[in-house]
Design a protein around this nucleic acid. Structure first.
Lengths: 207, 207
DNA sequence: TTTTTTATTGACTGATCAATCAACAAAAAA
DNA sequence: TTTTTTGTTGATTGATCAGTCAATAAAAAA
């Protein structure tokens, strides 16, 4: 079997296997054998390409982050207004690609692991900063500065909160419901602080 | 040393030690020795009183839940109006007792572990249901039914989200800031759907 | 006093797992 | 063809831990 040029393929397969293993187990303490098995290789190979388990986990998280970033850039590019940019960022986080049980479990697990690992903590901070700045790229045009900043913080917290609750299959099950909650917040926020013409652009209101 | 009547004391000490060990390690994979050490006893004793590690973790979570519930009941009893009930529930979740790094780390870790353990999942569902119904005890008097339900969902997600972000020491550091964000949401929500007299009761608005 | 109950531990066992390594095999280069 | 590089694994090692158990000792009951 040994063909040349396997490395990138194996790396990709191992990273994908890591996400699915974490998703299946629901936590980060998956074994290297489990991951390697899912990728169809031996655990020794996983060590060969990634060294320590830690590095595989970091690479996996970087991959998740890169995918989210890619999706976000696509969505932002298609947005035509500040208001649409906000919705685009929200929508991406609950899109098919992102709002998958496997992916959610992985994010959650990484959040916990980040308390132990400085490297993962750094990566999560990158995520938080990006999310904030992506949200601000829309909000800055809709609300005065300090208010916009707080709104971005709230939206970010909402997104994280809805993720964590989804992991438990508590209320707020589907992506549609989650988006509705966040969009409703945005509307409420714009309704109290911005000209009325901006209100009620997307969904029907309930006043 | 063996005095009679040690059991309840040891149980309490072990549960406290579990919270602090989880807080220190930042994850649920603390060893029984670590926990027992913090409680000043041998790991064999921890097994003696709790059987398996799993049961100690469940007991710990039940304890956290009971404390939160107690604090919430106190706060609700002191509230004089529907609006105050909402604020009371919010305030409790960010109070000295609850919004502690140790406690936050424990909650987060339990969320992850709940994906593996049916027992922990059940406990977290109890928490979610209680939070929702406590919030509704105030919101039901301020907003029409379906809107109130969605608002409770959003507030719960906000609280969970702010917890998770606090764990990383991302933005939103202090409890005050967190409360401000949630209260601001409530105000915005009431502002669009309820009579104006209800608005701006607690904090200054920014319109 | 003797016996039983309660509290407590050190030492041990068995299982799990990350990480290593020597070995093998196919392809590419010489 | 021979040599080197690249890909791959089974077997092994060493560490870590949950859980068990026999033993000890103080207190309470008989």
């Amino acid at each position: 079997m040994p063909k040349v040029g396997m490395e990138p393929l194996r790396r990709k397969a191992l990273i994908d296997a890591t996400v699915s293993a974490i998703g299946a187990r629901g936590s980060l303490d998956v074994t290297m054998s489990e991951i390697a098995g899912r990728a169809g290789v031996s655990s020794a190979l996983a060590h060969h390409y990634f060294g320590a388990k830690d590095e595989l986990l970091q690479a996996t998280m970087r991959h998740l982050l890169a995918e989210l970033n890619w999706d976000t850039r696509q969505a932002l590019a298609a947005a035509q207004s500040a208001r649409e940019r906000v919705s685009a960022v929200i929508a991406v986080n609950f899109s098919e690609n992102q709002f998958q049980p496997e992916t959610i479990a992985a994010w959650l697990a990484f959040y916990v692991e980040a308390q132990k690992s400085a490297a993962l903590r750094r990566l999560l901070r990158v995520y938080a900063r990006r999310l904030h700045s992506n949200l601000m790229s829309g909000l800055a045009g809709l609300l005065p500065r300090p208010t916009a900043d707080q709104a971005a913080e709230a939206i970010a917290a909402l997104i994280d909160g809805l993720y964590i609750r989804r992991a438990l299959r508590n209320g707020t099950p589907n992506a549609t419901g989650a988006i509705a909650i966040v969009e409703d917040y945005v509307e409420a926020k714009l309704g109290t602080a911005a000209p009325a013409t901006i209100r009620n652009r997307l969904s029907g209101d309930q006043s």
